[in-house]
């Protein structure tokens, strides 16, 4: 690398502890140990997120393992997983911190003879602070993985709050001052793209789009999650699901549905796919009646 980049390198604080992963292959291998089979794209991005110390924004259709990825990384890093589930109306007091009002009132009424100044400094101390996920993740000394799930469900105001946390890994509590992370958490944000996240938030993150896996990877996932299923049947299952995804359906089947279907077939004791089995179990992978009809027509299930 040339000089100019080297000098800018120092601007980004490096983590004092040993790097989480040594190489991309290391990421794949260790994630695989926990039962998460990562595509090269996923492994590369996780590696970079750990190396550059940047949050990871994961987008993709439902059921491709966005949340699972965060859990797997936590398991690999032997880190504590702190999860902030976003929903419409989630606010500072749910995400960041809150003062324990009831306890503060008790404290005030307990110390009747104290002067006001003493009481005031006391009731705005750490003891009366209720940390919520974001603050917990920043204050922790042990390695943490912070999962901010379904970020798109939260309101725009919430994004503004996240900006401070994600760019500087610090939180400002007016009564206490600014709390800076001693150890940067590994941050994963997930989004179903229900709402366009702001450009400012995207800019602070590494972007990863998890799509549907390649046929070969999906076959391995099915074999791993449903060990009882025969190799030939697993292959047929993945091929049919691949064909369904190429159709123009309202809700295309995801990896979760593939696994469900594999479980169903196993429970039914099917050895091979045939018209009758597929027709009876199509409801497991397709969730809309028009989709089922369309797929049945395209796979000519009625041709028998």
């Amino acid at each position: 690398m040339n000089k100019r980049l080297d000098s800018e390198r120092t601007l980004i604080p490096t983590q004092p502890e040993a790097p989480l992963f040594s190489s991309v292959d290391d990421v794949s291998a260790r994630l695989a140990e926990t039962g998460y089979l990562a595509s090269p794209a996923v492994a590369t991005t996780v590696f970079l997120a750990a190396r550059l110390g940047k949050p990871l924004l994961v987008e993709g259709p439902a059921g491709v393992g966005k949340t699972e990825l965060a859990k797997a990384v936590a398991q690999v890093a032997k880190a504590r997983l702190i999860r902030l589930q976003c929903y419409e109306g989630v606010d500072e007091s749910r995400a960041l911190y809150e003062w324990n009002h009831a306890k503060q009132l008790l404290r005030i009424s307990a110390g009747r003879d104290e002067s006001w100044d003493e009481t005031r400094t006391d009731i705005f101390s750490e003891e009366f602070l209720l940390p919520r996920p974001l603050l917990t993740a920043i204050r922790g000394d042990e390695p943490t993985v912070l999962l901010i799930d379904e970020t798109d469900k939260a309101d725009v105001e919430m994004e503004g709050l996240l900006l401070e946390v994600l760019s500087d890994f610090q939180v400002t509590v007016p009564e206490l001052g600014t709390i800076t992370a001693t150890r940067r958490p590994f941050v994963v944000l997930t989004s179903n793209a229900g709402r366009e996240l702001s450009e400012a938030l995207r800019r602070r993150c590494l972007f990863l789009h998890i799509g549907f896996p390649e046929e070969e990877l999906e076959r391995r996932i099915v074999r791993l999650k449903v060990p009882g299923l025969g190799a030939a049947l697993a292959e047929s299952v993945v091929r049919v699901v691949g064909a369904l995804r190429a159709m123009d359906l309202r809700k295309v089947p995801s990896v979760a549905e593939t696994i469900d279907w594999a479980h169903t077939l196993l429970a039914l004791g099917a050895d091979t796919l045939d018209e009758a089995v597929v027709r009876d179990t199509l409801g497991v992978i397709l969730k809309h009646q028009d989709d089922v009809q369309k797929a049945a027509a395209k796979l000519d299930l009625d041709a028998l």
């Binding site: 590696f47 970079l48 993709g60």
Partner: peptide
């Protein structure tokens, strides 16, 4: 690029995509 090196072109592609892009 520095972290990934030039050994594997596909990794490089994914790495650059992760850092440069913001949407699918």
């Amino acid at each position: 690029v520095e972290a990934l090196g030039f050994a594997d072109r596909d990794l490089l592609r994914e790495g650059l995509a992760a850092t440069l892009l913001h949407g699918p």
